[in-house]
Write a protein that binds this DNA or RNA. Sequence first.
DNA 1: CGCAATATTGAGTTGGTTCAAACTACGTGG
DNA 2: CCACGTAGTTTGAACCAACTCAATATTGCG
Lengths: 237, 237
Amino acid sequence: MQVTLQSLASAPVPTLMRRSPSRSTGAEFLDRSLSSGQTRLYAAKQHLFCEGDPASEFFMIEAGNVCIYSVLPDGRRQVIDFAYPGDVVGLGADGEHTRNAEAMAATRVRCLPTATIEAAVCRDPRLGLKLYEAVSRQLGDARHRLMSMGRCDAAERLAGFLLALLRRGKRATAAGREIVLPMTRSDIADYLGLTTETVSRTFTRFRQEGLITIDQGILIAIRDLPALQRLADGEHR
Amino acid sequence: MQVTLQSLASAPVPTLMRRSPSRSTGAEFLDRSLSSGQTRLYAAKQHLFCEGDPASEFFMIEAGNVCIYSVLPDGRRQVIDFAYPGDVVGLGADGEHTRNAEAMAATRVRCLPTATIEAAVCRDPRLGLKLYEAVSRQLGDARHRLMSMGRCDAAERLAGFLLALLRRGKRATAAGREIVLPMTRSDIADYLGLTTETVSRTFTRFRQEGLITIDQGILIAIRDLPALQRLADGEHR
DNA sequence: CGCAATATTGAGTTGGTTCAAACTACGTGG
DNA sequence: CCACGTAGTTTGAACCAACTCAATATTGCG
């Protein structure tokens, strides 16, 4: 059974979770501060915005998933980020968007005009700080991924990816060690800078080595967290 | 002849350049806003900060170059960014620094306490916006590099790197098509996610194909800008 | 059920790495 | 001023992780 746009429209806003004791996501704050924004719905594969579009608004995801990506002229694609409920996308653009944002599933967003940012910041300087912190967090993530892409092999990248998903999932559901992948192998491959074949083979190897189990291709259960952690941290060589 | 710490100490602050018509660096603004900071000098290979250090201050580079990098337990290194005069490093850290920052040459910085940021933002909300914009620019750079690392081959990465250096150099010196590399092949390799050997071979290939000339290994002259541009933009396949 | 999209597995190829050796630039001290 | 030593760079040859191309197997949906 699939989540439809209709069901999304009426569903309640999920409670936003704290991400860490030391640092909030900023999302709940932005939520309050810029709550004037209107709600909008996207079907799977619809775009929130494309490269070159005027960056007149940014978005807070309330339900669903969004994929931020770039494409080269010959079609090579790099997924820059996956965004989940509570995440903000489209921040930091100056004038126009520089990447594409596509809903991976039926998605509901709060959509916020960029034009009001400056005024809002002047009314409440703490908002400026929150924007700074929200973008700083995204910067930290991107830079962490640079290390992964530049210096880690396929197994290390995939392990890091699974653990990041697990951490995110835990905040939302408190579920132990299971992950439901909301994206295809091809999305994962384009995120990790690999091919679908390599992602698939690495999943298989993880399964054979008892690190995970896989159900229906999309339900992953972590069986050996420490081993995955060592892989992700580059401590196995 | 080498630049010494002594000569740096007395040299004037270089005029900060605009980066683009549409968007200033924020550096000149931060410069004014937080000019209370003290000047500090670092010799080549000295660290401004290390991973885990309390992030009690951030830095604006006035002269020299700084290399931001991470290291895995087994020694694999990823250069996250090179920073040049006018750039800000150490922003966006929450509590403690998450990477290392090392002076590549004798370097003079303005050093600014993070503790005063919040207060300063409350006094002048526009400062919060500037911090947001400064970090947003770094985020854009990091994400651009994700595409390069994930989907581009050695030639495309090196071409993109040279052109980025050229753009930066033009702002500072208005020099036509020459670049003086302030970093070693090994720094470049760790920045691009390659090995020194591959970087060296790719330089040689560029030279043989008439794209560049190389003097003393560090003075690069661009001979065929359009070809390099096509390479960097992934338009050659 | 049957189709279309996605995922897995296999076999062969390759771009970049690894290991090793030679070369160059440059600062130091005789 | 030159010989020497060190650090960095270039080049060569063998190797390998991930890619490409191709076939088969799932999954989910009408």
